[in-house]
Design a protein around this nucleic acid. Structure first.
Lengths: 140, 140
DNA sequence: ATCTATGCAAAGTGTTTGCATGTTA
DNA sequence: TAACATGCAAACACTTTGCATAGAT
């Protein structure tokens, strides 16, 4: 779906700032995480005029619309990742030393989530599995 | 282990503020989550003179020492939970409407974490499984 | 023409820190 | 008494918001 179409379908107006953000995420390799500041810096670098406030507002919109997944690795700021509905959901193993997140797929996690939600009478809307440890490099 | 002992073993000085915090967590039922503000309010209510700054400092110390687990439910503030090493680790299913966290045990999660860490050459230090959805009450 | 989005700067949150003072070992 | 912990207030980082202006439909 073209970016403009995605916006219209959600009842949002098509603006250069929003298009720039969508393009930026589309250009990223799957599963890349970006903070609001990261994203803003990239956009400015590419001469897309956009304020930090609009960056935040748009990120929040896209999260509510389900196009972005919000992560919190407890580093003091949130990370955003584009949701590719076709892809299987992946999870993260984060190095506690270098803070680099490595992603992995594990379908068992999804099954577990569905089971648990059902058992507690919840209507499942999201789940996340996060592992922390010291990566091979940092163990050196 | 008595609270004072726990502090000494970690090379920390025994102060009334730290003891008050340890007692507070000991009094909580297993798996209760507290924010720094929550904890501070409780202590003040019980006439334990303590500042918010010291509350934060002590929470951070206890996290580093592995006595507290830090959670981030993306509500804008962190939650802390006392680690009872004897208990099996539990996880959370959080209602996206009322934000109430319900905990559950699921040993399969721990096995999965160990597998994943090994597969990626990580030395496992922690893991967390979080499920979000709408609870039975809020579905009403 | 109307309604929405943007930019700016200011306000908000939760959390951390510098420094003088009080406390522990 | 030497090292460490505390309180206070100021500083912080990230995020949100009010309002006037610019832009989309």
């Amino acid at each position: 779906m073209p970016d403009a179409e995605l916006l219209r379908q959600s009842g949002l107006r098509v603006t250069p700032q929003r298009l720039a953000i969508l393009e930026e995420f589309a250009a990223l390799s799957a599963g890349t995480h970006l903070s609001a500041e990261d994203l803003h810096a990239r956009l400015v670098q590419q001469r897309s005029g956009i304020s930090l406030a609009t960056t935040y507002r748009t990120l929040n919109l896209l999260v509510r619309l389900g196009h972005l997944r919000e992560h919190d690795f407890t580093e003091g700021h949130r990370h955003y990742e584009w949701v590719r509905h076709a892809d299987p959901q992946h999870h993260h193993i984060v190095c506690v030393v270098c803070l680099r997140p490595v992603e992995f797929a594990e379908s068992a996690v999804g099954e577990l989530a569905r089971e648990v939600a059902e058992r507690h009478g919840f209507a499942l809307s999201a789940f996340e599995f996060e592992v922390r440890g010291v990566c091979a490099t940092c163990q050196g």
